[in-house]
Amino acid sequence: MPMLNKLIRSREGQLVIFTAVFFLAVGIVSPTFLSFQTVDSILTDSAILMIMASVQMMIILTRGIDLTLAANIALSGMVAALIGMYWPETPLFLVIGAAVASGLLLGVLNAVFIALLGIPAIVVSLGAMTVYRGMVFVLSGGQWVNSQEMSAAFQAFPLNRMFGLTNLAVIGIVLTILFMILMRHTRFGRELYAIGGNPAATDYVGINTKARLFAVYVLAGTAGGLCGYLWVARFAIAYTEIALGFELLTVAACVIGGVGIAGGTGSVLGAALGALFLGVLQNALPVMGISPFWQMAVSGLAILAAVIVNSRGRRKRGQQILRVSN
């Protein structure tokens, strides 16, 4: 059974098995957990993280990191919320379009500094995230936009149903599949892997590294804009601090999904499964009667466990000719 063997050996396969076992184990403790409703809410809850982890994976793949994603969600979400508040008659697709455009603009800004000027991604995004987050405050004047100020259509879209799933879950799954195809089967995706493997060599082969990096940050920003609308509409509230710390959660999902932080390795599927695992964890704790205050520590442990497993897997394959002892 070479297929099964391969599945068990791959990181994605292990993660699927581990998540499934975990899911069933929780189900045995509290049988109410094993229902379509749970699956539904896990998919809905993790959809945004799945999308964001997928684009974060592409960026980490190219040896970068984007810490602005959460601030982008907050800013683009606020743009959508304010448009929805002041001009309630605006058709929904225009509202979403505005959020996406705002995300795209932020992505372009990041890309100019990171891809064109060549400043380290971690530094740029560290500075930019506080600037974007501050812009939310400036834009809203520090006010909250709450559910009464949003139109019914604005709020309903993410939780409306399509094919038996919520729109949010459908968007999450569809985008993840699109990103998988993009990274596995298009020239652009393969070139990103090449850049992650060896940026200098990629330049010499004639791939326009700067243009690819530019595109990847813009893509991430655009996805962030879309998620900004989805976040605000799903939780029916917009304020300066929404999605605070979410940027590190996307990195965590990538690490759990086996994406190498040094770049060049990993898959969209892995990142999305990592996000899904965090979603299962989040939904399982209350069912098991564990206080929500445990959640942060447990996800911290999950990240550490994942990174330790990652490094063990890599060690076996590596060949060290000379042992360095100290």
């Binding site: 990195v251 690490v255 206080s291 205050f293 942060m296 520590a297 911290g300 550490l304």
Partner: peptide
């Protein structure tokens, strides 16, 4: 890598404080 370790312990330490 220290960046990943400390992202993990960031959640862990604050998580323990919350517990």
């Amino acid at each position: 890598p220290s960046i990943i370790v400390t992202i993990g312990t960031m959640s862990l330490y604050r998580g323990i404080a919350f517990i």
